[in-house]
Design a protein around this nucleic acid. Structure first.
Lengths: 344, 344
DNA sequence: TTGAAAGCGTTACCAG
DNA sequence: CTGGTAACGCTTTCAA
């Protein structure tokens, strides 16, 4: 079961390896014709022979020679988290469609691990990277930027990193949207819980919250509680418990995990939404519709985020300049922000 | 910014490329010493030079020459679904730890797409595959088995595929466990909803249900409703609605998505668990603890499934024989099966 | 313990 | 339009 090489095809078709290489690399133009300097007759014969022999290009050899690998790497903090799992699927589909195969590796919000996996994927000659930078990871990423590796930052920005493509959510708008909805529904004592992760998406959602509160004359009520992944479960419960005594009437949770923890804490504490506390959550999940009262939440355009990042990256790989793409969040209304109404 | 090659290192260290290659491929033995036929002094010098020059192996070249790539591919039906997203993370961590980089690609329960992505990853010389076979995908997988590609079947079995490793859940036991719990709690009119997917995990969970019902003299109450991904939402609601009239008192849902749909339908229909209907769901999710009544569910050992599959695959890549590993599910009790009790 | 040299399968370059 | 041939960077004999 020896591997069929370009040489076997060439011999069988009675042409040179060069011809075969041309044909195999040719793209079909809109008319379905091969776009290469080869006699169509010959090309067709080569194609048939290749098909018959079961030839498949050896990417390792092609990569070694050409420097390109038709491979990209996607590095989120955790591929199993809801947001990235969804987006990864969109990335994968788009990449496959464009002829790329994709490596996935999680950085774990850990700069050292990020550097590790960057090293690992670069050793495989990936043509480009889609990365969600974690705190402290700027240096490692910049090293690759300097080495001219095409990179797209996804979901998180970093002003320490220049000359890369960016596909981001308008996080300020997201925070603003959530807060203003609450204000418009009559809530005033609105607080927020966030992680001390040092990533742009969170800090911008916080800015959005602050801006909106300030704009509506609620600057004195601004309060953001901070926690970490490890302590989140107990911290969130504590924050919520204490807040009730202080007369807080609404919480904005800027990530899915914080939203789930908040709902869980409320259930445990016997608090109801919206009666005891209004809630605006983040990202999509079954829990928002299955919770006793449906939960209002901010929705990110996953499909677009994923597809745009692949499109931008491949465009950069092809030599085009980097771009910054900012996508808009949308709001999905639930009962958790409907003051004085019992909702579905 | 030219790439540092083994030659550069050799020249700089004043040794031959062979030596450098030896050193770079040597594994550290338990004492931390390099396990290769090279003078320790020389080895150390080479290592230092490599470090200083920032050398990193070019896997494309290594792969071309050696036939190995230090790459594996993981092909679930959908990397964004809850179960596979979780397991992918475990696979990724273990693979990284063993020095492998991993491609992910979804088959979409589509035999043609499976064949596509198999072709794509094989062209990249992956050393082995972890696959969750979809209906009709046996032929494509068998072609690779015949080509001696090490393969581990994960989560789903197929008796059409021989000579591969397998890491599976004891799905019969899972179905049995769920059913017997319900029987022991006093439920007798227990039904099940499943997909017509033609995959082993589902059909074995059905067998478990049937076995348990039969064993407890409830053979006449056996009833499995079938649906498809596309129609699931409306079908599940219909099944549940009709079942109430027939006096059904419990449902076993053998996947996460069916569980979520069932809970959603019940909410919509104003049915309560366990009062109107007892529920046993599948896989882990926040919804089971956040639902009005906590939901009893079957838990798969994700971490073990992921890690074992990587360990088995790498062992097979190293030339060891294939194995079949069957892991046991566990039960997580909630209020949804507590007849006549109002639970947390 | 060390080194020279032969490829691995492609693509890129240069001729015809 | 077509074909020869030299790399690409590494691993792997084989010899010293």
């Amino acid at each position: 079961m020896k591997r069929v090489t370009i040489r076997d095809v060439a011999k069988e078709a009675g042409v040179s390896v060069t011809l075969v290489s041309f044909v195999m690399n040719a793209k079909r133009d809109p008319d379905g014709n091969l776009d290469c300097p080869v006699n169509p007759e010959t090309a067709k014969r080569v194609l048939q022979v290749a098909q018959r022999l079961g030839y498949r290009r050896n990417f390792a050899a092609a990569s070694l020679r050409s420097g390109r690998s038709n491979t990209i790497a996607v590095i989120p903090n955790d591929i199993s988290n809801k947001f990235f799992a969804g987006i990864s699927r969109c990335i994968e589909d788009k990449a496959h469609q464009l002829g790329y195969t994709v490596f996935f590796a999680s950085s774990d919000e850990n700069a050292q691990k990020l550097e590790d996996v960057l090293g690992a994927v670069m050793a495989h000659n990936v043509d480009g990277l889609i990365v969600a930078p974690c705190a402290g990871g700027d240096a490692a990423i910049n090293k690759l930027v300097d080495a001219k590796v095409p990179i797209v930052l996804l979901d998180r920005d970093s002003d320490q990193i220049q000359n890369v493509g960016k596909v981001l959510l308008d996080d300020v708008e997201a925070g603003c949207m959530a807060t203003e909805l609450l204000v418009n529904k009559g809530y005033t004592n609105i607080e927020m819980i966030s992680y001390t992760l040092g990533i742009s998406s969170l800090s911008e959602r916080e800015s959005g919250y602050r801006n909106a509160m300030t704009k509506h004359g609620l600057v004195d009520n601004i309060r953001i509680h901070y926690t970490t992944y490890g302590d989140a479960a107990s911290d969130v419960e504590k924050f919520i418990k204490n807040s009730i005594d202080r007369g807080v009437d609404a919480f904005f949770l800027p990530t899915y995990s914080l939203s789930a923890l908040a709902l869980s804490a409320m259930k445990k504490l016997g608090l109801k939404t919206p009666d005891d506390l209004a809630i605006v959550g983040f990202d999509e999940s079954d829990i928002y519709s299955l919770y006793e009262t449906t939960v209002t939440h901010i929705v990110q355009p996953l499909k677009e985020l994923g597809e745009k990042s692949v499109e931008l990256l491949t465009s950069m790989i092809a030599g085009n300049p980097s771009e910054v793409i900012i996508l808009k969040p949308t709001l999905c209304l639930g009962g958790s922000t409907e003051r004085n109404k019992k909702s579905l």
